[in-house]
Protein backbone atom coordinates (compact mmCIF):
# COMPACT_ATOMS: atom_id res chain seq x y z
CA UNK A 1 0.00 0.00 0.00
CA UNK A 2 2.93 2.35 -0.35
CA UNK A 3 2.20 5.48 -2.30
CA UNK A 4 4.76 4.46 -4.89
CA UNK A 5 2.37 1.78 -6.14
CA UNK A 6 -0.72 3.96 -5.98
CA UNK A 7 -1.37 6.14 -9.03
CA UNK A 8 -1.86 9.89 -8.83
CA UNK A 9 -5.31 11.43 -9.32
CA UNK A 10 -6.30 15.03 -10.01
CA UNK A 11 -9.31 16.26 -8.08
CA UNK A 12 -11.99 18.68 -9.30
CA UNK A 13 -14.66 20.05 -6.98
CA UNK A 14 -17.86 21.89 -7.84
CA UNK A 15 -18.53 24.34 -5.05
CA UNK A 16 -22.18 25.01 -5.85
CA UNK A 17 -24.74 24.06 -8.42
CA UNK A 18 -24.24 26.11 -11.55
CA UNK A 19 -20.51 26.55 -11.07
CA UNK A 20 -17.82 24.63 -12.92
CA UNK A 21 -15.75 21.88 -11.37
CA UNK A 22 -12.47 23.51 -10.35
CA UNK A 23 -9.13 21.80 -9.89
CA UNK A 24 -8.30 21.71 -6.18
CA UNK A 25 -5.33 19.36 -5.92
CA UNK A 26 -4.18 15.80 -6.32
CA UNK A 27 -3.92 12.63 -4.25
CA UNK A 28 -2.84 9.00 -4.38
CA UNK A 29 -5.32 6.13 -4.45
CA UNK A 30 -5.28 2.52 -5.66
CA UNK A 31 -8.31 2.96 -7.93
CA UNK A 32 -11.03 5.40 -8.98
CA UNK A 33 -13.50 4.42 -6.25
CA UNK A 34 -10.98 5.00 -3.48
CA UNK A 35 -9.73 8.16 -5.18
CA UNK A 36 -13.23 9.59 -5.01
CA UNK A 37 -13.51 8.74 -1.33
CA UNK A 38 -10.09 10.13 -0.54
CA UNK A 39 -11.05 13.29 -2.40
CA UNK A 40 -14.18 13.60 -0.28
CA UNK A 41 -12.10 13.25 2.87
CA UNK A 42 -9.27 15.57 1.81
CA UNK A 43 -11.01 18.31 -0.11
CA UNK A 44 -14.64 18.57 1.02
CA UNK A 45 -14.27 18.42 4.81
CA UNK A 46 -15.49 21.99 5.22
CA UNK A 47 -18.45 21.90 2.88
CA UNK A 48 -16.39 22.97 -0.11
CA UNK A 49 -18.41 21.06 -2.63
CA UNK A 50 -21.52 19.38 -3.92
CA UNK A 51 -19.82 17.26 -6.59
CA UNK A 52 -16.35 15.75 -7.03
CA UNK A 53 -14.51 14.46 -10.08
CA UNK A 54 -11.30 12.46 -10.00
CA UNK A 55 -9.20 12.02 -13.12
CA UNK A 56 -6.10 9.84 -13.46
CA UNK A 57 -3.23 12.31 -13.63
CA UNK A 58 -1.73 10.13 -16.39
CA UNK A 59 -4.81 10.81 -18.54
CA UNK A 60 -4.10 14.54 -18.65
CA UNK A 61 -2.03 15.88 -21.52
CA UNK A 62 -0.53 19.20 -20.45
CA UNK A 63 1.23 21.91 -22.40
CA UNK A 64 4.90 22.02 -21.61
CA UNK A 65 6.69 25.08 -20.19
CA UNK A 66 9.11 25.03 -23.17
CA UNK A 67 6.20 25.60 -25.52
CA UNK A 68 4.98 28.58 -23.54
CA UNK A 69 6.30 31.19 -26.01
CA UNK A 70 4.86 29.61 -29.13
CA UNK A 71 1.62 28.64 -27.40
CA UNK A 72 0.66 31.81 -25.62
CA UNK A 73 2.73 34.83 -26.63
CA UNK A 74 1.25 35.22 -30.15
CA UNK A 75 -2.08 36.13 -28.53
CA UNK A 76 -0.53 39.08 -26.73
CA UNK A 77 -0.78 41.71 -29.53
CA UNK A 78 -4.03 40.67 -31.15
CA UNK A 79 -6.48 43.07 -29.58
CA UNK A 80 -8.96 42.45 -32.40
CA UNK A 81 -9.72 39.09 -30.79
CA UNK A 82 -11.49 40.90 -27.96
CA UNK A 83 -15.08 41.93 -28.61
CA UNK A 84 -14.34 45.35 -27.10
CA UNK A 85 -12.08 46.09 -30.09
CA UNK A 86 -15.10 46.58 -32.31
CA UNK A 87 -17.20 49.68 -32.48
CA UNK A 88 -20.85 48.71 -32.59
CA UNK A 89 -23.51 50.81 -34.34
CA UNK A 90 -25.60 52.79 -31.83
CA UNK A 91 -28.65 50.67 -32.64
CA UNK A 92 -27.08 47.55 -31.14
CA UNK A 93 -25.62 49.19 -28.05
CA UNK A 94 -27.84 47.18 -25.82
CA UNK A 95 -27.30 43.90 -27.61
Amino acid sequence: MSEATEPLWEVFVRARRGLNHTHVGSLHAPDATMALRNARDLFTRRQEGVSVWVVPAAAITASSPEEKDSFFDPAADKVYRHPTFYQLPAEVDHL
Binding site: M1, E3, H28, R37, N38, D41, L42
Partner: peptide, 12 residues
Protein backbone atom coordinates in the same frame (compact mmCIF):
# COMPACT_ATOMS: atom_id res chain seq x y z
CA UNK B 1 -1.44 5.42 8.70
CA UNK B 2 -0.37 3.62 5.50
CA UNK B 3 -0.80 6.83 3.49
CA UNK B 4 -1.56 10.47 4.12
CA UNK B 5 -4.94 10.06 2.43
CA UNK B 6 -5.88 7.18 4.73
CA UNK B 7 -4.70 9.08 7.76
CA UNK B 8 -7.09 11.94 7.03
CA UNK B 9 -9.88 9.46 6.33
CA UNK B 10 -9.39 7.70 9.68
CA UNK B 11 -9.06 11.00 11.53
CA UNK B 12 -12.31 12.19 9.94
Amino acid sequence: APSLEEEVALAN
